[in-house]
């Protein structure tokens, strides 16, 4: 007796379901790429590009923290607000690091200033990478 596997959670059907979600929600790579560096490209099966982007952004963010860089939060000054917007580009990295209390409260040495810029720029680069994943998804880029 033959059974139909249609609708069952078999490997081919799971892949088809994943593809279906990806096809329906155009902004999924953009949001995933923002939350986790490189995830947008991984969703589109661009493994090499995703790995390089993830390594670069994670490396820059981690080095920033190791240099005692500051994580902006509750900014009131306009320049601080811009830096906080850059920090927010790191997605979950920023949110988790803030929750864990990582990063310095105040910049006291020169390397901490470098670290602060590293964290802000990592966030901005992550936004560029997420937009690139969106462009790949929509077909603007191949």
């Amino acid at each position: 007796m033959r059974y139909s596997q249609k609708g069952m959670a078999t490997a081919p059907n799971k892949n088809a379901a994943e593809q279906d979600i990806l096809q329906r929600f155009v902004y999924l790579p953009l949001i995933a790429g923002w939350l986790v560096p490189g995830a947008g490209h991984f969703l589109l099966r661009k493994w090499g590009r995703g790995a390089l982007l993830a390594a670069s952004i994670l490396g820059m963010f981690t080095l920033g923290l190791l240099m005692q860089g500051k994580l902006y939060g509750g900014a009131s000054d306009i320049l601080d607000m811009l830096c906080q917007a850059g920090d927010l580009g790191n997605g979950l990295l920023y949110l988790v690091s803030r929750a864990l209390g990582l990063g310095a409260d105040q910049v006291q040495v020169t390397t901490a200033d470098y670290g602060t810029r590293f964290i802000v720029v990592a966030g901005l680069l992550n936004v560029i990478a997420a937009v690139d994943a969106h462009n790949l998804r929509t077909g603007r880029k191949s």
């Binding site: 590009r49 390089l52 982007l53 390594a55 670069s56 952004i57 490396g59 820059m60 080095l63 390397t111 470098y114 810029r117 590293f118 720029v121 990592a122 680069l125 560029i128 990478a129 937009v131 690139d132």
Partner: peptide, 16 residues
């Protein structure tokens, strides 16, 4: 710091 910054930023610029 300049070299590290340039390396990471260049990788992202190149790919994107």
């Amino acid at each position: 710091a300049v070299v590290l910054f340039a390396l990471f930023a260049s990788v992202v610029f190149g790919i994107t």
